[in-house]
Simulated scan of single mutants.
Amino acid sequence: MSRAERLLDLIQLLRRHRAPVSGPALASELGISIRTLYRDIATLQAQGADIQGEPGLGYVLRPGFTLPPLMFTADEIEALVLGSRWVARRAEDARLGDAAANAIAKITSVLPEDLRQSVEGAALLVGAGEVTPAVVDLGAIRLAIRSERKLAIAYRNADGSATERAVWPFAIGFFDRVRVVAAWCELRQDYRTFRLDRISRMEALPDRYPRRRAVMLKEWREREGIRPS
C-alpha cells in the first residue's frame, strides 16, 4: 500500500468513528506501527485535517476536511481521459468500462475548475472497432487473475480441434480485434495464450495455482522479450 492510500484509509477510518478512537486501535486496523500512525496523523494535520487528540487519549476527526486536490498536467489529464474512453468503448467488459467512467468522475470532482474543464473538454476521441466477440465473461477472468485461481476452459484451436484444459491465468492482452489471456497450461506444461473468442466454455475452479501471478508474468515477459510498460 502506498503512503497516499494509507493516508486516505486513515481519513476514512476516522470518519467512521464519531467518538475518539485510540492510537493502538487505529494502527491495528490499518496494519501499521504506532509510530507510523503518529507520523501519518501529523502529516494530515499539517495538510489541514482537524484531527483532535493526542497519544493516550484517542483521536477524532472534526467534519469539513477533504484531501487536497489532485494536481495533473494537461498531458496527464488527456492521457487519463483517453485511456478511460478507450476502456469504456473498446474493452468489451461492461464492469471495467463503468469503473473507468467512475474513476474519471472521482478525479474530476476534486480538480480545480480550470483542470476540470480540461477533462470535460478533452479532444482525444476513441473510434469504434471491430472486436471479435467473446462468449465467456472477461470480468470473471479478471477476478480469477486477481485471486490467483485456476480456470477450466474448453478451447478451440486455429485448426478447429477442441481441447479441455486447466489453466493458470495471469494477464489479459487487449488487441485491436481480439482479446487474449496469457496463462500456464497444465495440458502443455508451458505458457500459452488463448483467444477469448475461441473459449466456448469456462469455469472458475476453487484451487489456487501454486505459483505467484507476478512471478509468472515476469518469467513470461522475459521469455517473450516483452518489456514492462
Rank of each mutant, 00 (worst) to 15 (best):
R3N: 14
R6A: 13
R6Y: 13
L8N: 08
I11P: 07
I11W: 07
R15D: 08
R15L: 02
R15K: 12
R16M: 10
H17R: 11
L26Y: 07
E29K: 15
I32F: 12
Y38G: 05
R39K: 12
A49S: 07
A49P: 01
I51F: 01
E54F: 09
P55V: 05
G58E: 06
P63K: 03
G64T: 01
F65L: 06
T66K: 00
E78Y: 03
A79C: 01
L82M: 12
A91D: 07
D93M: 10
A94P: 07
A99H: 08
I104V: 15
K106D: 12
P112R: 14
A123K: 04
L124Y: 11
L124M: 11
G129E: 15
T132H: 04
A134E: 09
D137Y: 04
D137H: 06
A140H: 01
I145V: 11
S147R: 14
R149L: 13
A154M: 05
R156P: 07
N157Y: 10
A158M: 08
G160N: 04
E164S: 12
A171K: 04
I172D: 02
D176W: 08
Q189Y: 03
T193A: 01
F194V: 09
F194P: 08
R198W: 01
S200A: 11
S200F: 03
R201V: 08
A204C: 12
L205Y: 05
A214T: 10
L217A: 08
K218P: 04
K218F: 06
W220I: 03
S229T: 14
S229C: 02
